[in-house]
Structure formats: structure tokens, C-alpha cells
């Protein structure tokens, strides 16, 4: 087990957009079977890093290995290992929820009958019964998130990379998703999530990386990173507090 490569290895990953260095040399090893949290303030480079780690964005420099396979050199071998839920991207909105899951399954090479069975399982497990026959165009944000997660799961990948998977999801569905992901990790899968919700990360993740300014500021097991305090305090220490704590006196009602 110790000889097997990590689920995801990032080496020297860089990305620049115009004058902005979004990702500035990120190195990470995400162990197999871990529930890994990527934390960072807005604009820290989390989404850019995850996009490069999943084949959605070409890095300027660096290497991405999925179970030891170079994603950008051998995408045919690496992409089937990944299940991906990006944040802030559109979805094919003329399909129903059920059709979108079927579409993802067929694209991933799952046989038709197997796709049908898995589609129905996922719709039930994620409480998407009504969404199955509703066009994605009419979905709420939470429904879109859940059906996106179903698309990431349908081919039973070995690594799940989920950008803000609990955003806009109601508590009941959130509990169902947590249960699915924890069960996936317990069976040997790897989950990487990005989130701003510290309590959620502390509850779910066994390892975390805090990213700021396109770099890794801290990385390790949850206990190693948060030390004696809680994760939120450690996060604020690393990324810094809001510099100008201006008093909005005009906002007070009396």
C-alpha cells in the first residue's frame, strides 16, 4: 500500500491570467482513501487548481498525476479515474436530470443497462425524484449541484474532486451526500472537496490544505493543520484578517 502512488499528486502547478498569478507553484500529495479538504479565501486559487487537476484548464507549468498517471500526457488513462463536480460552470440545460446522468454515464463508457440502473439509484439516493423529469433549465441551484454530483458518481470513479459540493444544498440532502461520500471513502475511494465552511471540513475531512495567494500555506492531517485551536482560527491566522474593519454605523437601526 505504501508503495502505491497518491490518489492525486500536484507538482509545481502554475497558472497566470493576464497580470494575475492565480496559482503560483502548488505541490500537493493527496493520499489514497483520504477525505481531503482544500480551503482558502475567495480568489485564493482553489477552483483554478482543481480545474487544472481535473483536465478542465491547461496549466502553464507543472504536473498532475492521478494514481500515478500523468493527466495531461495520458488523459485517456487518467480521466476515467476521476469524478468531477466543478463550481460555477453551466450544465446542458435542455436535458432532464435523468437524461443528464444517463448522458454522463454513456460518455464515461458505462453500458446502457448499467447506466439505467445507476441513474435510478442516484436519483433516489440524492432525493432527485422530481428532478428526473424536469429540465435542468428549471433546476434550483441545489438541484443542479446534486445532479452534478450524480454525474460525477455514475461511473464509479476512484477519485472524486468536488468544488463546493454542499453549496446551496438543503440539510437533508446534505446529510445524504455526506453519507454517500463517507461510504465511498470507507470503501477505499478518495474525495477532494473545496469549501469555505470550516465546520463542514472539520466534520468530514481527515486531511486539509489551506491555499492563499495561489500557494499552499499549510497542509497535513486535520490535527496537524489546526494545532491546538480550531480550524477557523488557524485559517484566519494564515490568510490574514480583513485589513479595514470599518464600522458601518449607518447600518444600525437605532
Amino acid at each position: 500500500m505504501s508503495d502505491s502512488p497518491p490518489a492525486i499528486t500536484l507538482r509545481g502547478l502554475r497558472k497566470r491570467f493576464g497580470k494575475t498569478q492565480a496559482v503560483d507553484g502548488i505541490d500537493l500529495d493527496i493520499p489514497r482513501g483520504s477525505f481531503y479538504g482544500v480551503l482558502g479565501p475567495n480568489g485564493a486559487g482553489k477552483t483554478t487548481t482543481l480545474s487544472m487537476a481535473t483536465g478542465l484548464l491547461t496549466p502553464d507549468a507543472g504536473q498532475v498525476l492521478i494514481h500515478g498517471v500523468d493527466l495531461w500526457r495520458h488523459p485517456d488513462a487518467a480521466k476515467p479515474l476521476l469524478g468531477v463536480l466543478p463550481d460555477g460552470l453551466r450544465t446542458f440545460d435542455r436535458l432532464t436530470g435523468a437524461e443528464l446522468i444517463s448522458y454522463a454515464g454513456i460518455l464515461r463508457g458505462v453500458p446502457k443497462d448499467e447506466v439505467r440502473a445507476r441513474r435510478d439509484d442516484l436519483l433516489a439516493a440524492l432525493d432527485l425524484g422530481a428532478a428526473g423529469s424536469t429540465l435542468v433549465a428549471d433546476f434550483s441551484a441545489g438541484m443542479a449541484k446534486k445532479v452534478g454530483l450524480a454525474c460525477a458518481l455514475v461511473h464509479a470513479p476512484r477519485v472524486l474532486v468536488l468544488d463546493e459540493p454542499f453549496e446551496a444544498v438543503d440539510p437533508v440532502s446534505g446529510a445524504a451526500i455526506r453519507s454517500i461520500l463517507q461510504s465511498f471513502v470507507a470503501s477505499g475511494g478518495t474525495v477532494v472537496i473545496s469549501s469555505h465552511v470550516m465546520a463542514l471540513v472539520e466534520r468530514l475531512c481527515d486531511r486539509v490544505a489551506i491555499v492563499g495567494g495561489g500557494r499552499v500555506l499549510a497542509e497535513g492531517s486535520l490535527d496537524e493543520v489546526r494545532g491546538d485551536g480550531d480550524l477557523e482560527r488557524r485559517f484566519v491566522e494564515l490568510v490574514g484578517e480583513v485589513a479595514d474593519k470599518r464600522d458601518l454605523a449607518w447600518l444600525r437601526q437605532s
Partner: peptide, 21 residues
Amino acid sequence: ARSGGSRRISDGILAAVGSSP
């Protein structure tokens, strides 16, 4: 208005896939 709230019961995507394995 995105789709007028229309619903589709059948899975047109799976139906488009042939039976050849």
C-alpha cells in the same frame, strides 16, 4: 422563462443509444 416548466418522462438520451454492445 427557461423551458416553460415542461417535463419529460422518457429518457431520450438512453433511447438514442443502440443495442450494440
